[in-house]
């Protein structure tokens, strides 16, 4: 059976919060996983402790916590990240970034 790295949803209505988990592929989304290796908060946060100038320019950010060594281990033993987790893992260079559909299409004629 496949082991996946995926998100499981926590938080109340309208305030999603995800654990990045390693779990059996056929198990329920929110069931107890093999391991929790991080979290992902999809709600954009405002950066704090900035001067007024900086605050005007500042970008909102999304918080991710991740144990990279555990993620690397699970990828090494064949765990398959879901699309969303793939995107997060590719940001820190643990997997090759997947190209978006449109970008792939644009590349073909070249």
């Amino acid at each position: 059976m496949v082991v996946k790295i995926r998100l499981s949803r926590f938080g109340n209505k309208h305030s999603p919060f995800y654990n990045i988990v390693v779990a059996q592929a056929r198990s329920a989304r929110d069931s107890k996983p093999l391991e929790v290796i991080g979290t992902f908060n999809p709600i954009p946060q405002k950066p704090t402790n900035l001067s007024e100038e900086e605050a005007r320019k500042a970008k909102l950010y999304k918080e991710v916590t991740l144990d990279r060594s555990r993620a690397k281990y699970w990828l090494g033993v064949g765990a398959q990240p879901s699309d969303r987790v793939w995107r997060l893992l590719s940001m820190v260079g643990l997997v090759e970034p997947k190209l978006k559909f449109t970008e792939e299409k644009l590349k073909v004629p070249q």
Binding site: K59, L60, K62, V64, T65, L66, D67, L88
Partner: peptide, 12 residues
């Protein structure tokens, strides 16, 4: 993207 991503290292 509109957002920045902040990755924080944690230990499991």
């Amino acid at each position: 993207g509109r957002f920045e991503f902040r990755f924080k290292d944690v230990v499991v």
